[in-house]
Amino acid sequence: MGKFNERLLNELTEMSKTEALTLQVQFAIFNKRLNEFYSDKMGVIVKNFDDQASFYGKKTEDCIDSKNSIISKYNSEFQKIYDARKEQFYNVVAEIQEMQGNQKIAMANIMKVNAEIEDLADSSAYKEYVQNKAEFENVVNTTLNKAEFDKYSALLENLKDPFDSHYKTLYALAEKYDGYQAVIAECEKKLIEIGNAAVADFESIVKYRTAGVAIKKSNVFSNIINKIMSIFGGKARFDKEVVKKMESEIADVEKANNEVVDVVSSQTVSLVSRIEAARAEVNAAYNSAVE
């Protein structure tokens, strides 16, 4: 028994380490996807601003404050979504960790019940049970007396196997472990869905990049006109055609994003509550099995 428990404990320890690493790598993948998306999109926004500045004959250093202000606002919006989705991710991870912890407790209980079975096998109560069972079975199988047959059949039927409740508990614990495993698998799918949803939220931040501030195509003639115009009213035109439009875009993004963050927060609450209900079902099934 000692070796049995030791082997099981070693395997459980190894599995715990693997599970902890798995959650870390899953989060790293979530982070990586969002960071890559963020870098790409911010690169496009910055390039668009610079191209516009160039089109209106502006040097980047002349409009650095406007540029920094717009970049900073976009940054904040990406950050809001990242934080909300990260919190959602962590909430699901916390549920997974708790269930994995409960699985280990179920395993520890299996070891405990198994040890009790071994102790019981050496007990006088068990020896008496084995003796009685053999005797009753012998009478039932050999007697020709109807009254004796009925009496010993009833005794055999009512003879309680001391291991019964232990086997029942072992079975219920194994079911509990599997029940948690099924909920954990669903939660792991949710982690992937949260990553996908975060990318979709990031997409929505840049969907406001409308044709209004798309870089205007220029040709030799329009370049000359543009240079002449920029000498006289370049700053005002740039502010009106680019900076104000970008600021208006980011205001729309902020408004939409605040709604998204609220939705994500309620999704998180409802998701955690659904996971907890599934966990409660597993526990209820266990309690009912060992009653």
């Binding site: 190894e14 599995m15 690493l21 798995t22 790598v25």
Partner: peptide, 22 residues
């Protein structure tokens, strides 16, 4: 992640084998 998933599968197989000795 693939490596870790295989490691976990292997742990589960070993645990099931140990439990089947009960």
């Amino acid at each position: 992640l693939g490596v870790l998933s295989k490691q976990k599968e292997s742990s589960i197989v070993k645990i099931n084998k140990i439990l089947s000795e009960i």
